[in-house]
Amino acid sequence: MEVRTIKVFTTVDNINLHTQVVDMSMTYGQQFGPTYLDGADVTKIKPHNSHEGKTFYVLPNDDTLRVEAFEYYHTTDPSFLGRYMSALNHTKKWKYPQVNGLTSIKWADNNCYLATALLTLQQIELKFNPPALQDAYYRARAGEAANFCALILAYCNKTVGELGDVRETMSYLFQHANLDSCKRVLNVVCKTCGQQQTTLKGVEAVMYMGTLSYEQFKKGVQIPCTCGKQATKYLVQQESPFVMMSAPPAQYELKHGTFTCASEYTGNYQCGHYKHITSKETLYCIDGALLTKSSEYKGPITDVFYKENSYTTTIK
């Protein structure tokens, strides 16, 4: 009895394709271990004539594949690729409408935090270190965002349907971005203890939790000093293409032309909904596939993004 075979390709990165001759009487799992086709788990399936010449994702289970996976995804987590594939199996079914010149995501599976993050990423200057993220990001900007969303979920250790947080998501993504040249110098002034300067680099240099107003941050924000008295913390120097200011959701007025974009969060910790506000020729609110415009805006804002380049204080 002759062994019926077909020729397929296996890959971990969709760049390096490895030619395989597979036995049609055995499952993919018996031949390769966990195997995925377009995100779908085909591990328990036997090869079919229609699979001839198709590319299958496999887990990096030998040295060659491990090197290829690390170079593309910059992670050695053995569960990463499987999590990416199972997320992709959902995100490829989502709709990605162009809204006001940006790629958004039609609401499904509690994905409003991903839509808000995706919209924000198209408006701030950011370059990702893992080629996987950078490639998928370019495709997302062009309207094909399924891979990018699935990668975000995998890097953030999230599953489809789980509630997510924009600030946490951005923080994970910033860790995989090139923020080497970003720098922030802060000064804390206390009447009792004097003053202390701190220099922050990388992710810490672009994120701040405690106030939404970048102007206020430049002037000074009140913080408790270690001595128990009130101290003032203010920005001395900022070198970065953008800054992200966050605070627990509270009524906040966004003035046209003073910011790049913002995240609105309605609801409580267990259950809520994100919308995205962007400042173009007027203010726009993007909620999944829905767009509304207004000249002014007041609502429960939790993150505001500002364009920056270089700032030095005039406070002496």
Rank of each mutant, 00 (worst) to 15 (best):
A132Y: 08
E52Y: 11
N14T: 14
S246H: 03
C271W: 15
T19N: 09
A117E: 01
D62Q: 05
P130W: 02
L81S: 01
Y252I: 11
H276G: 08
G161V: 00
I45S: 13
R139C: 10
K158D: 04
S294V: 14
N49A: 14
R4E: 12
T10K: 11
A177D: 07
D287N: 02
L153D: 04
S181F: 10
Y138W: 15
S213E: 02
M26Q: 15
N268F: 02
G39S: 14
E204N: 08
T116Q: 08
G101I: 01
F32I: 11
Y234R: 11
Y284M: 12
D62W: 04
V42F: 14
L235W: 00
V166K: 04
H51G: 02
K95T: 13
P248I: 00
D77W: 06
V243W: 00
S25I: 15
S25Q: 15
C261E: 02
G161K: 08
Y155H: 10
A132W: 00
K201R: 15
S310F: 15
N110F: 05
L88D: 08
T192Q: 08
K316H: 15
Q197T: 15
C156D: 04
L283K: 02
Q270R: 08
N16R: 13
Q134R: 12
K218H: 03
V58M: 09
A140P: 03
I15Q: 13
Q20K: 13
L121R: 03
M244N: 01
D165R: 06
K275M: 01
K44P: 12
Y274S: 07
K106W: 10
C193N: 03
C112L: 07
L200H: 05
K46Y: 12
Y208F: 14
K54E: 11
S171K: 14
I6D: 09
Q237Y: 15
W107C: 02
V221K: 02
F148P: 05
R4K: 12
S213Q: 04
Y28L: 07
A108Q: 14
K316I: 15
D62V: 07
F242V: 04
A145P: 11
V188S: 07
L186G: 04
G164V: 09
N89H: 07
E296S: 14
Y284D: 06
K293W: 04
T11W: 07
T10M: 11
E239V: 12
E204S: 11
T10A: 09
G299W: 02
Q122L: 03
K219L: 10
S240W: 00
Q230L: 14
I124G: 08
F217D: 04
T103R: 05
A87L: 07
N268T: 15
Y274M: 02
I277L: 04
G164S: 03
N110R: 01
L81T: 10
L81P: 06
G164P: 05
R66A: 12
P60D: 00
D287L: 03
R139W: 10
A140V: 13
V22H: 06
T159A: 13
I15R: 15
F70W: 08
Y36H: 05
V3R: 12
L212Y: 10
K7W: 09
V42Q: 09
K54H: 12
I105V: 06
G220W: 00
G194M: 03
Q238S: 04
T159Y: 07
K191A: 13
I286G: 06
A146G: 08
L179I: 05
N129D: 08
A87R: 03
C112R: 01
S240T: 01
T10N: 11
L235H: 06
P130S: 04
T10G: 09
C190I: 02
K183A: 05
T35V: 13
V12E: 11
N157F: 06
H90D: 08
L179V: 09
T159H: 12
A250W: 01
N14K: 06
Q195C: 15
L17M: 14
N268V: 00
P60V: 10
F80S: 01
A146E: 09
P78N: 03
G202K: 04
T260L: 15
N147R: 08
Y73M: 00
A142R: 11
D41E: 14
K316P: 15
K54N: 12
E162V: 04
L121S: 00
P131C: 04
S310P: 02
K44W: 09
R83E: 00
S246Y: 00
E2V: 09
G257W: 04
K316L: 15
H256E: 10
K293Y: 12
Q197D: 05
Q238L: 02
S240K: 02
G220T: 05
A150V: 02
S263H: 14
S295P: 07
N187R: 13
S279Y: 03
Q270L: 15
C149H: 02
R83Y: 10
M85C: 09
C112I: 07
Y72L: 09
T312N: 10
A262C: 00
L121K: 03
K233W: 06
I223N: 02
N309S: 14
T278K: 09
G210P: 07
F80R: 04
E215Y: 00
T116H: 06
C193D: 00
H51I: 02
F56V: 11
A69F: 14
N89P: 09
S246M: 04
W94T: 07
G220Y: 03
F80Y: 11
T192A: 14
N178F: 04
V99F: 14
Y72W: 08
P60Y: 02
T116D: 04
Q237I: 07
L179E: 04
I223M: 08
K201W: 14
K106N: 10
N111H: 00
V185R: 04
G257C: 01
E239L: 08
Y138K: 15
S86T: 12
N49H: 12
Y269I: 15
I223T: 10
L81H: 11
F128V: 07
Y311E: 12
I45N: 15
T192N: 11
R66G: 14
Q122T: 05
T312M: 12
E215F: 08
P97D: 13
Q270C: 15
Y96T: 08
Q134D: 06
P248F: 15
S240R: 03
A140H: 06
L212Q: 00
A132I: 05
L254G: 01
E2L: 10
I286W: 11
S104L: 08
H48I: 13
M245P: 06
S79N: 14
K316V: 15
Q196E: 13
K201G: 08
L153K: 02
A115K: 00
G299T: 05
G288N: 01
K307Y: 07
K229N: 14
G267P: 14
